[in-house]
């Protein structure tokens, strides 16, 4: 191929960075457990004994979920900012950030997932425990 030496040098650096990253994954414990990732990867037909690759998938999934959650959080905050100030009680209640289907569906739409808020689903809007009882 017609690569100049510099780019191949850079590629070598990238390869080194990737292998270094993979090695660092041995110490990193993603939130999504290995067993779960292995289970779903096995369901999809993926097979590889290397635990680093499992961790890589776990990290990628965690990143995806975190991005979606972050987007939903931004939607949630933006929605709370537009709530009229006169309802003090409601405002007090909404201080807590709750991930609702409304925000989640908006966030997921950007990632190519179309979910709709269930119109008549009995999911109480005041879902979530009080901050006092929230011990976890």
């Amino acid at each position: 191929m017609n690569h100049n030496p510099q780019s191949s040098e850079g590629r070598h650096d990238d390869d080194a960075a990737l292998s270094e990253f993979l090695a660092s994954l041995m110490d990193f414990t993603p939130t999504i457990p290995d067993e779960l990732v292995e289970h779903y990867l096995a369901k999809s037909g993926f097979q590889c004994p290397d635990v680093r690759l499992t961790r890589l998938v776990a990290v990628a999934t965690q990143k995806f979920v975190a991005e979606v959650a972050n987007d939903a959080l931004q939607h949630c905050k933006a929605r709370q900012a537009t709530i009229p100030k006169d309802k003090k009680d409601k405002q007090q209640k909404d201080k807590r950030l709750t991930l609702t289907m409304e925000d989640l569906s908006k966030a997921l739409r950007e990632y190519g997932v179309n979910v709709r808020h269930q119109e008549y689903f009995a999911d109480s809007p005041s879902a979530g425990m009080d901050p006092a009882t929230r011990d976890e």
């Binding site: 939130t31 979920v65 807590r96 950030l97 991930l99 609702t100 999911d123 979530g128």
Partner: peptide
């Protein structure tokens, strides 16, 4: 993961989704 992003609570349906 959602808690690490700053959420305090999550609806059951959205958690499942």
């Amino acid at each position: 993961v959602c808690e690490s992003q700053g959420f305090h609570a999550i609806q059951q349906s959205s958690l499942e989704t």
